[in-house]
Design a binder for these strands. Sequence first.
RNA 1: GCCCAUGUAGCUCAGUCGGUAGAGCACUUUCUUGGUAAGAAAGGGGUCAUCAGUUCAAGUCUGAUCAUGGGCUCCA
Length: 602
Amino acid sequence: MNEKSSEAYHESQLYRIRHSTAHLMAAAVLEMFPEGKIAIGPPIENGFYYDFDLPRALTPEDLEKIESRMRALIASRCDFVYQEITPEEGKALFADQPYKLELIDGILSGGVDEDGEGAATLPVSKAPTLSIYKSGTFTDLCRGPHVQNSREINPQAVKLLNVAGAYWRGDEKRPMLQRIYGTAFESPKELKEYLNWLEEVKKRDHRRLIRELDLVSFHEEAGPGLAYWHPRGAMMRKIIEDFWRDRHLEGGYDFVYTPHIGKAWLWETSGHLDFYKESMYAPMDIDGQDYYLKPMNCPFHILIYKTQLRSYRELPLRWAELGTVYRYEKSGVLHGLMRVRGFTQDDAHIICTPEQIEGEALRVLRFSLALLRAFGFEQIEAYLSTRPEKAVGEPARWEQAQESLLRAINAEGLVYQVDEGGGAFYGPKIDLKIKDALGREWQLTTIQFDFNEPERFDMTYVGEDGNEHRPYMVHRALLGSLERFFGILVEHYAGAFPVWLAPEQARVIPIADRHIDYAKQMEDALRQAHLRVSTDASSSRMNAKIREAQLMKVPYMLVIGDKEVEAGAVAVRLRSGQDMGAMPVADFIAHAEKAIAEHALE
RNA sequence: GCCCAUGUAGCUCAGUCGGUAGAGCACUUUCUUGGUAAGAAAGGGGUCAUCAGUUCAAGUCUGAUCAUGGGCUCCA
């Protein structure tokens, strides 16, 4: 969500409805648990939540009770009454609500508001005001806004969704609270649409589809977060990698290959052991030396750089590698292919002179956009993250790098947001986020300047003046990780991949056994045309064969019966259900080749 | 890592009060040879996640561990 629509949302009736529904939910929960403690309960993107500290864990049955109690509260047509209070009144009012008391202290000291958000936007001179909203017997510390009366909430457009744990103030050292997520809309129809959308999300879940389509598996007994690519998945990955390599050759990149492990020295020098030791796999002792599985490829590329004295004449260097790295992600964060412990970055490092930065920034951005679009992602937004308080590298270099990135964004006419101070300590970056078919955002590309490692590894080049200079280094991963990108592709296309990516592009379906010979001839003709094809020679009926191919989302089904054998044709059926009728196999091949070349969905 | 929930056949699930396991799909075989999303029959398949404990008896009760899911925190 961009800032403008976020602002509009904050002022919308929908926002007030959700905020007020959250209050009613808290009221209902307190009716069930009079001794319960309430924390915060803001509207969020698709609904709202409220955090509670309760004597026992909530069950799904509790949610139903809470929800029906909420409907009764809505029906009571209570007013939401705003009132400003003094600090003393506040402390008295919430004497038995410790979380609220903490919020009051926060507000009075000007630090945070009742949603736990920074109040930096408020003028410092203005004394913070405490306010409450009363609805029925329930009173909450709250800035609002709310609906005037609960009759503005449609009880049929409200639904509680799930319970989850959440740390108080998002701090893992503070108590774990119970968070109830719910949603509310202006009309039951909109609620229904949202619930349908959730269903669609479920249907496209890559964890289900990678199993159903026989693409990738995980194995509890062999280690969580480590993906196994089956032949169909591996075929797709090969196609993605081949395409990626071809594009990189065209884009002026060279390729390198580097090891998977390295001595502690590498990671001490790079600084990774200082900052990320917790999320690196533990070292293994080899001949008395600590070796680590690599969490990054960059130190290896730097070692290659340092094998020679480098001249400004050979820069820029663009070195790419599909480098597999291992990171010890915390157990609770693993999620299918989206968050794994072993993954392959489509990594590259661009090493260049200060003068070349401008051109390289634009070049790599343009390159990434073309790559993402080739995979069918058209909606792309940029996020520029700039220098944080604590940072390494000369401010002038930061300035230059940030300006180069911004000019590149503008040159490409991208919609963008700036995250001031949001960069890593070692350099500014551009991230690109795409929107998938369900409107969900995914960050894929990251383009990061690094003022740290060239220094730590003492990278140099000899300039025109004969002196040593420090080069600029840019890390970039465009697809991110192949595993995650693959998962996103699966969800974006719901498993029905464009023909050029489909692991099996065509399936030949003989109607009876006497058609098998001819079917095999057709299969062979397609294979000679470099199509990925198989023949279903099983004893199933044609209907079953079609269903099977359909479930595997094979783009083309070529049905072969007496008529086709006689006419020397194939009857083409698309997975959309469309019957293209019979045509000579050469015509079909031409049709398929066109769809492949155009990266068509079909 | 933290909170909560879950773990029974390859998949989706049932299994009552504790009495040594069941369905559909898938798989194998046989019959069937058919015109655009499931032809029929028979058969094989389970240390009920793992390890302890309670009990005459544990899929079922208890504990620990592992994994998965929903979130939180994190994400170079």
